[in-house]
């Protein structure tokens, strides 16, 4: 089949699907590493000074959530690409 016979819309859809997969997959790497680091340091901190756990937990949650936000942006981009 001649390449020019393929409907360009299909190519765009296929590219959007690949792009969506790449967006969410690559986007998740960063926040995975980030949350992992944050959890590790949090556990390190509370095992050294167990009495600070209450205060540290709040800031740990905040940090984890801010890491997560980046992936959520990627998720939104992925949805926009899939619904294209």
């Amino acid at each position: 089949m001649d390449a020019s016979m393929i409907d360009p819309k299909i190519i765009v859809k296929a590219a959007a699907a690949i792009g969506a997969g790449l967006a969410i997959g690559l986007g998740a790497i960063g926040s995975g590493i980030g949350i992992g680091n944050a959890t590790g340091k949090f556990l390190e901190g509370i095992s050294r000074q167990p009495e600070t756990e209450g205060k540290m937990r709040t800031w740990f949650m905040l940090g984890a959530v801010l890491c997560e936000t980046v992936t959520l942006y990627a998720f939104v981009i992925a949805i926009m690409l899939v619904l294209k």
């Binding site: 959530v65 997560e68 936000t69 959520l72 942006y73 998720f75 939104v76 949805i79």
Partner: peptide
């Protein structure tokens, strides 16, 4: 933006 997207994206996912 991030406040609304976080909640929306988590629930939608």
């Amino acid at each position: 933006l991030s406040l609304s997207l976080r909640l929306f994206a988590n629930l939608t996912a």
